[in-house]
Design a protein around this nucleic acid. Structure first.
Lengths: 364, 364
DNA sequence: CCCACTTAAGCAACGCTGTTGCCAAAGTGC
DNA sequence: GCACTTTGGCAACAGCGTTGCTTAAGTGGG
C-alpha cells in the first residue's frame, strides 16, 4: 500500500461520515474525532473535496463559547448512479444521487423469457429514459453518471458479471450481462444478486460501517444477503447466500432442486396451504442455524411473501430464535425485524453497487 | 489511518512473505513484486527489520546474468509465543518461534472439574516449565515472549477473554480466564475457542492470505472454525462457529441442548451405533448447507472422531457435497480434506493468536 | 584476461502524506 | 469593551514510498 492508497482511504472515511450525517451536515472537528485524524488533516481533505465540488459549507452550529463550527455537507448532485432491478415479472430503475437518495424512478413490466437481446435492449432504454440522453440533469448541467448497477435473482458471477442460470430461464445461462450492457450504454456496469443488493442497501443506509446482519428474502424463492463486518460477504466464487436450499429436514419432502427437505420448499409449501405460522417456524429454524453459525447482530426479513404477512413472520421467526437463545443461556436473542427499503430497496441497493465504494463501503 | 499505520501495514506484508518463504528465504526483488511496493521501499523496510534483528541475510541465489539476488530470511529466534490447549482431559502446551515452528512441547493430564484456581495454577506451571523461569533460551539469551494463547472448548468471549460456559462444568461460567492468567504469568494472554485456533493454524500455515475455508471438528462435540477472506470469522459477539447444534431434522431426536434434530446429536448417535457412513452423511448435509451459505474454498475435517475413521468421513461428506454441486450445475464441488496439523494443531493455533498479528494475519 | 553487458541494491533528492506549532477569525460573557 | 474560548487556516516539519542515479557483483563473448 502506498501514499495514494492511504489518501483515498482517508478521503473515503471522511466522505462516509459526511454521507451519514445527511443534510444537517457535520463539522470538521467532529470529522476529526470520528476518523481519528487530526483537525488539520481533515481540513486538507475537505479542502480538496470542496475544490472537486463534492462537499460544500452549509451554515454553522451554535457557538459553545468560541468560534462556531462550520458545517460541511455532501453535495448530492456531484454524482449519480442508476440502479436496475430485474425481477421475474417487473423492472425497476432508479436514479440515485451521491447520498443515495432516489431522484427519479421508472417501472416497466418485464418478461425474462423474451430472450437476452430483447431484455437488454429494453433495460437499456429504461436507463436512458431515466438518466437523459445525452446524460444531463433537468437543469442542463451534465449528469456525472458513475455507472449502472444491476440486481437480479439467481446465481451469478459478480466479479465477471456473468449469469450462471436464472431459475426457469435456461437461455440466460452463461450470458455476459455486464459486458453486453456496458458496451450498449457506454458506462460502467456492475451485476449482483438481488439479495446482495438488498443487503448492501441496508448496510449503507441503516447500519454502521462494521455491522453484521443477514437479509432473508422470501418471494418466489428464498435467498439471503449476508453482511459481515460491514461488507457484503459474497464468498470465494461470489455464490454465497444460497439460503433457500439449506436442508433442515433429512429425507424430507422433495424440492424442485432435486434435493429433499430444503427450507424453501417447506416454507413455500406451508404458505401455499395457508399455514403462515408453520412457514415462519421453518424459516425460523433455518434462520437460527444461520445466527448460531455466524453470530450476527440482526436478522432482517423481506420479500413479497414476508410483506404479505409481516407481523406473523417476524413474530414466528423471532420466537424460534429467542427459544434457542434462551436454551443456550445467551443474554439476549438476536433481534428480528422487517428489512427496511421495501419494494424499491433492491433497486436502490443496485445503485449502491457503484456509490458505496466511494465511501469505502460494501466491498472492504 | 496515518503514516505509522501505513508503515506497520507494509512491514507486516513483508514479514508475512518472509515467513511464508521459510528457511529457503526470499529476495528483495521478489518481495517487491509480491507486495506491489518498489524495490527501494522494500530495501528500506528490510533494513529496519535487520536492525531490529527480525531478518537476516542468508546467502544468494544463482545469477541470471547479473548480480545475484541476496536472500533474506526471518530469524526464528527473534520472538516466541506459547500455545496452550486445554482439552477436556488433557493439556497441551507448545513453545513456538516466530515462524510458528514448535520449539518445545509439554503434555499433562487435566481435570477441568478440579476448579478454576487449580487448573489455572497447573496451566501456569506448565507454561513456565516450557518457557523457562526467568524466561530464557537454552543458550542463555533472553527469550522474547510475545505472550500466551489459550484455546479451549465451549462458547466464550474472545475480546474480553471471559468463558461463557464449558459444557459439563458450570463452575467455569463467567470466569475471566484471560485476566487471571495474564496477572499470574505477567504476560499478554489471548483466549479463543479451540475450533478457531485450529482454523487459524491452517490459515496461517497452509493457506494464502485471503483463503476461505471451514474446519469442522468432531470430537466429544462438533464445532466449526470459519476463515473468511483470510481472517477468522468470530462474529459480532465472538460466538460464531456454533455448528454442532445446527438443526438438520425438524422434530428429530432430542439433543442434550434441549433442541431436536441437531447435527451433533444425530452424528454422534450414528457413530455410537457403529454407523460411520450414516454419521458422515449427516455431517455432509450440514456441511453442504454451510458451503452453500458461505461459498468457501475448502472444507477441512478434524477432531478425534474423524481421525478414527478419516477415509470414511472424507469420502462420505465429499459425496454429499459433490451430489449437491452436481445438482446445482457447478463446475466443480468444494474439495473435502482432512485438516492438517493433527492433535497438536489446536495448541499451535493458540500460539498463532499472538504470532499471526505480526504478519497481518488472522484478525484483519 | 579483459571488457561490455546485465542485474541487484544502496544513496540522494523528491513529492506527498498526516502532524505540529502558531496565528487570525469569530464568537461568548462579564 | 475586553478577556476568554473555540475554530480553522498557514507554514514548517518528519516520515512514508518513489524516482533518478551510482555502485556492487555477477555473466559471457572476444
Amino acid at each position: 500500500m502506498n501514499l495514494g492508497a492511504l489518501r483515498s482511504h482517508n478521503t473515503a472515511l471522511v466522505l462516509d461520515l459526511l454521507r451519514t450525517a445527511g443534510p444537517s451536515g457535520i463539522s470538521r472537528l467532529e470529522l476529526a474525532e470520528r476518523t481519528g485524524l487530526t483537525p488539520q488533516a481533515v481540513s486538507k481533505i475537505t479542502a480538496r473535496l470542496r475544490l472537486d465540488g463534492l462537499v460544500a459549507e452549509a451554515g454553522r452550529r451554535a457557538s459553545t463559547g468560541g468560534k462556531p463550527r462550520t458545517v460541511l455537507r455532501l453535495v448530492p448532485e456531484a454524482g449519480h448512479a442508476v440502479g436496475l432491478h430485474l425481477d421475474r415479472d417487473e423492472l425497476t430503475a432508479v436514479l440515485c444521487d451521491l447520498t443515495g437518495a432516489v431522484v427519479a424512478e421508472r417501472r416497466a413490466p418485464l418478461d425474462l423469457g423474451a430472450g437476452a437481446d430483447t431484455v437488454v435492449e429494453g433495460a437499456a432504454r429504461e436507463v436512458e429514459a431515466l438518466s437523459g440522453s445525452p446524460l444531463a440533469l433537468p437543469g442542463g448541467s451534465p449528469l456525472a453518471l458513475l455507472g449502472v448497477g444491476v440486481a437480479l435473482p439467481g446465481p451469478l458471477d459478480h466479479t465477471r458479471g456473468v449469469l450462471h442460470r436464472v431459475t426457469g430461464f435456461p437461455e440466460w445461462s452463461g450470458f455476459p450481462l455486464r459486458d453486453v450492457l456496458a458496451r450498449r450504454l457506454g458506462t460502467a456496469v456492475v451485476v449482483d444478486k438481488d439479495t446482495n443488493a438488498a443487503a448492501l442497501d441496508v448496510a449503507v443506509r441503516g447500519a454502521g460501517p462494521s455491522a453484521s446482519f443477514a437479509c432473508l428474502h422470501l418471494g418466489t424463492g428464498l435467498g439471503a444477503g449476508l453482511v459481515l463486518g460491514g461488507t457484503v460477504h459474497r464468498g470465494a466464487r461470489t455464490g454465497a447466500g444460497e439460503f433457500g436450499h439449506q436442508v433442515v429436514q433429512l429425507d424430507g419432502p422433495p424440492c424442485e432442486c432435486g434435493n429433499r427437505g430444503c427450507v424453501e420448499a417447506l416454507c413455500l409449501a406451508a404458505v401455499d396451504r395457508g399455514d403462515v405460522a408453520g412457514a415462519a417456524r421453518v424459516l425460523g429454524v433455518a434462520a437460527a442455524n444461520l445466527v448460531a453459525l455466524l453470530d450476527i447482530d440482526v436478522l432482517l426479513l423481506g420479500g413479497r411473501t414476508v410483506a404479505a404477512h409481516e407481523e406473523e413472520f417476524v413474530r414466528g421467526v423471532g420466537a424460534v430464535i429467542e427459544e434457542r437463545a434462551r436454551r443456550e443461556g445467551a443474554d439476549r436473542a438476536v433481534p428480528v425485524r422487517v428489512a427496511p427499503g421495501g419494494a424499491r430497496g433492491v433497486a436502490e441497493g443496485a445503485a449502491q453497487l457503484l456509490l458505496a465504494p466511494l465511501f469505502g463501503r460494501g466491498d472492504g
